[in-house]
Amino acid sequence: MTVLDARGVTMRFGGLTAVKGVDLSVAEGEIVGLIGPNGAGKTTFFNCLTGLYTPTAGEVRYRGSRLPARPHEVTRAGVARTFQNIRLFPNMTVLENVLVGRHVRMREGLFSAIGRSPRYRRAEREAREAARELLDFAGIGGQASSLARNLSYGDQRRLEIARAMASGPGLLLLDEPTAGMNARETRQARDLVLAIRGRGVAVVVIEHDMRFIFGVCDRVAVLTQGEKLVEGAPAEVRADERVIAAYLGTPAGDGPGGAARGEGD
């Protein structure tokens, strides 16, 4: 069954078309990579999926029904995301960050917070247990009570993933989850993404680290200048001349072609 089905998504900012008629579908339990040079419109496409932008044209369906327009409704429907430039709640504790992620799966309002009925207490306890479990899952369980701002860079990325997972998504959108990480952290991030899939959550990941993308994705789509260039299995995409050209320019140009092939490997 398809989890995500985006058709003809177009986003125009005045005269600039950042995303032009992009189709993307994600099946249950699939990990899809989204790559492309800087400025290709990958993050804009994510913003269109999650309601931060309203697409100028096109349709996004999640599990068969149209995704609502506003970000918090999208999260409630089951699509969660992380940000390219980490956006945690820096002055809240690690545990509180994840609890905010649970917000959408809890119903307790103002009056039950004041009244603190047994039901409220149970919901709060369960939320805390779930949050701690997710922190352990992400490998930062030992830091539950430190402030998010004091975490190391890699741990902040993991916390962002744990927070997004707390909303109980069926589809997780990761925007450059390994940016700024060293080789070991990247390997751990890879394991984390695979473990997320193991929990039955489909993943779409934007990334520039090709080793990561080709190692973890079932399918890769390439975006250039707002349009989808190629989509297919990692091996096909890696071999595609157009992709190499899009990243490094055509061999006829003055780009250093030799170095290009080196990075592709």
């Binding site: 918090h72 956006r87 509180e96």
Partner: peptide, 27 residues
């Protein structure tokens, strides 16, 4: 009581980063 609840956490989240709070499902 309200400050230490789902509502209070959502308020602090809005103070910290409104866009992220929205993306986490906070109306």
């Amino acid at each position: 009581r309200v400050g230490d609840s789902r509502i209070g956490r959502a308020w602090v989240a809005i103070r910290e980063d409104e866009v992220a709070a929205q993306a986490m499902g906070v109306n």
